[in-house]
Design a protein around this nucleic acid. Structure first.
Length: 851
RNA sequence: GGUCGAGUGGUGGAAUCGGUAGACACAACGGACUUAAAAUUCGUCGCCUGUAAAAAGGUGUGAGGGUUCAAGUCCCUCCUCGACCA
């Protein structure tokens, strides 16, 4: 009896166990077997295993990728569809410190919870390939790849300004700081120069930019990467300094405006500042430089903030007209971009204009065409050069070329390409990350440890804080770990920085291909078979950094002959976010949905009666609007959760969560169930017959329509919502017909299986089939079933729908026209007016009569 | 401020290359079943006019203009929202 109605809580765990025990989704690792079939590699971004557990955003990522994996598998592909854990990182370390536990323990627990939660969704992962970036067997190879970068001179030490929090004794990332304070504790943060490992990603800037053209990524995402790399072409121009033998170089994208340069600016950190400053100005300049040290780049370059600066008392010589040009120090110029010095053209640069206005510096027009005089607003657009000697009369583009040619001939400047992209700050002063496979000799030389010495495992230490003298936590390790004897007998001290959280995720997609290889990061033949990733899906927050870093490492591996493709991720999509209603009072305090009630159409807090504002926002703990995927599974089952996430809209769209919508797809699953199972008896539905499907024409046609649409929509990924619509239409039709051929319904179950695998498998089983429907072959539709003897022709008069005509499918244009003109309803609208034109659109079954 | 994207019923969303706007759901309303409720099932459902009910007509995809036999879709201007960057 209990077995009769649809009971996901019963069938889902059962089939999940069967899949697991029978390795239903395991992919062979034998290249000879693999070669017999085409491959498809579909990857969802692996989760950071924080203690918060799985959230709805993960499900929105992993469900569509799973549907695609199931679909391709049924189409006869070998499908790589793996899952693993991004496990190193600061949140885990902080949690461990707070709870006085070892990060290894915390990570073990978190990853187990994640795996349990993910498995409940019924995703078809090959769990034998599971990886964990914090295990030595994995990070051994992260270190190994780092050594390949190091050998290519792509890793170097440099003094760079970092965000240092004295209270915590650690470096923080820009994202962790707001208004000069650490967001979580409010402790002040200062900028400090520190010796840090850098990766030379700028050496790959041009290729990272150009090779975007090879990728099937959304245009917006490519644009974001292009913007981040920020290529600009311009010129380096050298300025002499008056009464001095010193010179400095500026980078400008607008060499055409050199005649309009009325001052120059050095960044406060520029080494020349102290050398050229006039003694009278020294005190003011020093004070200014000190003050600017603690400002972030963002604060300094924000257009909204007032420009500040100090005149050094020194003058540069403008190379094109020998005019003495005052040199200022101002923090809106950054040492890290270009040369740390600019020529300022207030007539044609907004920030320079603002600065010049503030300090009363002359503004000169050198490009004509602005709407307002340059004294009022900078004109940054195209125009014709004026007041510029040999450039006068030229357009901006031509003027740039001519000026660069002139500078080169005078040896005062060169053509220069500049990137916004900076080298990658690659070290952290923390514990829970990959140790560097490097050591330092006493004389300061750095030695790379041999490959055989890997992995360099994290040492046990008693506290995860930096040492009292400011060294990273790893410096707390005992001498056994800290000191390493090299092959030549020398004793060296290990590097005590660790790698940043991004490191492990830069190559994990390669480790999945050969997850247990102990001789190499992965087998070359397997790499050649599987790569590139055909579809990579993840949140838009990774649109720049993770994807850029991974592309960079991949290109280095490519140059070393270790991988066969230039790019790792051929296809890529960002899933949309899930929004939910949140409730806030006027003070900004959030309320949980259960603390809220409707009162006269107003939303108020139950306890206080205070009226609340509602809004749709991204689900997040801090907004009290989170819905847990596991709660939905408890109430409706995994199949309903999966269908709902796909049905609310396109995968890439951000859509609001609606509880009632889940009930809708749940009802659909119940209707599917009742097509097969008599809920009274638990036996098969009496309407099921053994007759061939072709005899039942309406259902058979609907089936083929459904095969066609589900196939196309699943393939396109972003239309899975309409694939489900069509399956609903099929089920609605099937519910109404008198007899249901089993063959027809079995084919339908194939279509449903990638989307709702548990119910499809259970019904497949109940129809007497053995094995897994997930291994069955995907059906194809028969186009001839879809064509019919008559077609409905839409008849328009003056573009407006007036009538529908049933005509034989083979009717000619002329016959259609005659039939339309003879139609009584059409006639009413023609009213004897002369017919001026008749347009027949055969493909659309449409005729338009113009009178 | 810049770049990109998006605005369609009460709601989520459909609509191929410009060719029947609102598929499929949710909510709401009405009928059947039930002692009752739930569940199920049948039906209505953009707005306006019209009608006892129909029929029928008008209008309608953020606003305004344009191209076209035909515009949610293409072009221009504007408004609003979102994402990214500054």
């Amino acid at each position: 009896m209990e077995n009769h109605p649809y009971a996901p809580a019963k069938i889902e765990p059962y089939w999940q166990a069967e899949w697991r025990e029978q390795d239903a989704f395991k992919v062979p690792n034998d290249i000879e077997i693999l070669k017999t079939q085409p491959k498809f590699y579909v990857l969802g971004m692996f989760p950071y295993t924080s203690g918060a557990g799985l959230h709805m955003g993960h499900a929105k990522n992993y469900v569509p990728t799973d549907v695609l994996a199931n679909f391709r598998r049924m189409q006869g592909y070998h499908v790589m569809h793996p899952m693993g854990w991004d496990a190193f990182g600061l949140p885990t370390e902080r949690y461990a410190v707070r709870e006085n536990e070892h990060p290894v323990q915390v990570t073990k627990r978190n990853t187990e919870i994640f795996q349990q939660q993910i498995q409940r969704i019924g995703l078809s992962y090959d769990w034998s390939r599971k990886i964990d970036t914090s295990l030595p067997e994995y990070y051994r190879w992260t270190q190994w790849i780092f050594l390949r970068l190091y050998e290519k001179d792509l890793a170097y030490l440099a003094d760079v300004p970092v965000n240092w929090c004295p209270a915590l004794g650690t470096v923080l990332s820009n994202e962790e700081i707001k208004d000069g304070k650490y967001v979580e504790t409010g402790d002040p943060v200062e900028r400090r120069l520190m010796h840090q490992w850098m990766l030379k990603i700028t050496a790959y800037a041009e290729r990272l930019l150009e090779d975007l053209d090879l990728l099937d990524w959304p245009d917006g995402l490519k644009e974001m990467q292009r913007h981040w790399i920020g290529k600009s072409e311009g010129a380096d121009i050298t300025f002499d300094i008056k009464d001095s033998d010193k010179t400095f170089t500026v980078f400008t994208t607008r060499p055409d405006t050199l005649f309009g340069a009325t001052y120059c600016v050095l960044a406060p950190e520029h080494p020349l500042v102290s050398e050229i400053t006039h003694p009278d100005a020294a005190a003011a300049v020093n004070a200014y430089v000190e003050e600017s040290v603690n400002k972030s780049d963002l604060q300094r370059t924000d257009l909204a903030t007032e420009k500040t600066g100090v005149f050094t008392g020194a003058y540069a010589i403008n190379p094109c007209n020998n005019a003495p040009t005052p040199i200022w120090v101002a923090d809106y110029v950054l040492m890290t971009y270009g040369t740390g010095a600019i020529m300022a053209v207030p007539g044609h640069d907004e920030r320079d204009h603002e600065f010049a206005t503030t300090f009363g510096i002359p503004i000169v027009e050198v490009i004509s065409g602005g709407e307002k005089p340059v004294e009022e607003a900078a004109f940054e657009g195209d125009g014709v050069c004026v007041n510029s000697d040999f450039l006068n009369g030229l357009q901006v583009d031509d003027a740039k070329k001519k000026m660069i040619a002139w500078l080169e001939s005078e040896e005062k400047g060169t053509l220069q390409v500049q990137y916004r992209l900076r080298d990658w700050l690659f070290s952290r002063q923390r514990y829970w990350g990959e140790p560097f496979p490097l050591a330092h000799l006493e004389d300061g030389t750095i030695v790379q440890l041999p490959d055989e010495a890997l992995p360099v495992e994290l040492p046990p230490i008693d506290a995860y804080k930096p040492t009292e003298d400011g060294k990273p936590p790893l410096a707390r390790a005992d001498e056994d770990w800290l000191k390493v004897t090299l092959s030549d007998g020398n004793i060296a001290t290990r590097e005590t920085n660790i790698m940043p959280q991004w490191a492990g995720s830069c190559w994990y997609y390669l480790r999945f291909l050969d997850a247990h290889n102990t001789e190499a990061p992965f087998d070359t033949a397997l790499e050649r078979y599987w790569m590139p990733v055909d579809l990579y899906m993840g949140g838009a927050e990774h649109a720049v950094l993770h994807l850029l870093y991974a592309r960079f490492w991949h290109k280095v591996l490519y140059d070393s002959g270790l991988v066969s493709t230039q790019e790792p991720f051929q296809g890529l999509l960002n899933q949309g976010t899930i929004l939910a209603e949140s409730y806030q009072d006027t003070t900004g305090k959030y309320y949980y949905p259960h603390e809220v009630e409707q009162n006269d159409g107003k939303v108020v807090a139950k306890a206080s009666g205070v009226s609340l504002q509602t809004q749709l926002e991204k689900m997040s703990k801090s907004r009290f609007n989170v819905i847990n995927p596991n709660d939905v599974i408890d109430n409706y089952g995994a199949d309903a959760l999966r269908l709902y996430l796909l049905f609310i809209g396109p995968v890439t769209a951000s859509t609001p969560w609606q509880d009632a919508g889940v009930e809708g797809v749940y009802r659909f699953l119940q209707r599917v169930w009742r097509l097969f199972v008599d809920e009274e008896s638990g036996e098969l539905n009496e309407k099921l017959t053994d007759t061939a499907g072709t005899t039942e024409s309406e259902l058979w046609r609907e089936l083929h329509k459904t095969i066609k649409q589900v196939t196309e929509d699943t393939e396109s990924i972003d239309k899975m919502n309409t694939a489900i619509s069509q399956m609903m239409i099929f089920v609605n039709t099937a519910t109404q017909v008198k007899s249901l051929p089993k063959e027809t319904l079995k084919i339908f179950l194939h279509l449903l299986s990638p989307y709702a695998p548990h119910i499809a498998q259970e019904l497949w089983h109940r129809l007497g089939e053995t094995g897994f429907i997930a291994h069955a072959q995907w059906p194809t539709h028969d186009e001839s079933v879809l064509t019919s003897a008559t077609v409905t022709i839409i008849a328009q008069v003056n573009g407006k729908l007036r009538s529908r005509l049933e005509l034989p499918a083979e009717a000619t244009d002329k016959e259609i026209e005659e039939a339309a003109l003879a139609d009584e309803r059409v006639q009413r609208f023609i009213e004897g007016k002369p017919v001026r034109k008749v347009i027949v659109v055969p493909k659309r079954n449409l005729i338009n009569i113009v009178v």
